[in-house]
């Protein structure tokens, strides 16, 4: 908590040390939206810059992690929207786009199914099942009511299941859906 206060006073080292614990998870979260390494690195760096600039506005140092997560999600989604717009406009740049990430065989279906989800379902599921956030924590990050969060999780799992269509990961999606009711 002291480090947050120090960071708010402009102490870069304190700010960077705060990121230490969160780094990998943040990067992977961003990756789930942008889907390739160079974009993920770029967005990650943007997130750091934005976060350092805005940290003075953080009223409750306790909420640093969730606050940071919100920035990462928003930056990622904005970045992808802009990128996809630009991609549509300039087909010449298609060959410059990095090959899509290929996870290992067993996880390919889940990865692709995840990419099919609209952002609000995807975000809810990642926060719930990757970051182990509680529903209230998720509500805080995405700034929506708890009921809405629950709906997003439920519908997200359902959609995931539909895309997985009987592949083994389907089992988990089924049981997770039941647990969360």
């Amino acid at each position: 908590m002291q480090r947050v206060k120090q960071a708010q006073q402009g102490d870069e080292a304190a700010f960077l040390s705060l990121l230490n614990k969160e780094q990998d998870k943040l990067y992977r979260m961003i990756f789930a939206y942008v889907q390739n390494e160079s974009d993920a690195i770029e967005v990650y760096q943007q997130v750091i810059i934005v976060a350092f600039e805005k940290i003075v506005q953080l009223k409750e140092p306790l909420y640093f992690s969730t606050w940071l997560m919100r920035i990462a999600i928003n930056q990622s989604i904005t970045y992808v929207k802009k990128r996809d717009r630009e991609r549509a406009v300039s087909p010449e740049s298609l060959h410059l786009i990095e090959a899509d990430y290929r996870p290992i065989e067993e996880q390919l279906d889940l990865w692709q199914a995840l990419q099919f989800l609209p952002n609000h379902y995807k975000t809810a599921l990642l926060l719930r099942f990757y970051h182990d956030y509680t529903v209230p924590q998720i509500a805080e990050v995405i700034e929506l009511p708890i009921g809405t969060v629950k709906t997003h999780i439920r519908r997200g799992l359902k959609m995931l299941r539909q895309h997985l269509k009987g592949v083994y990961n389907d089992e988990w999606a089924k049981s997770a859906e039941k647990d969360d009711e």
């Binding site: 990998d24 990067y27 990430y101 889940l110 995840l114 182990d132 990961n169 988990w172």
Partner: peptide, 18 residues
């Protein structure tokens, strides 16, 4: 629900640049 669910496992396999 903690532990390694398939989503978490998949996410943890994303390589982080060193």
């Amino acid at each position: 629900m903690s532990g390694q669910n398939p989503l978490k496992k998949m996410m943890n396999n994303i390589p982080v640049p060193q």
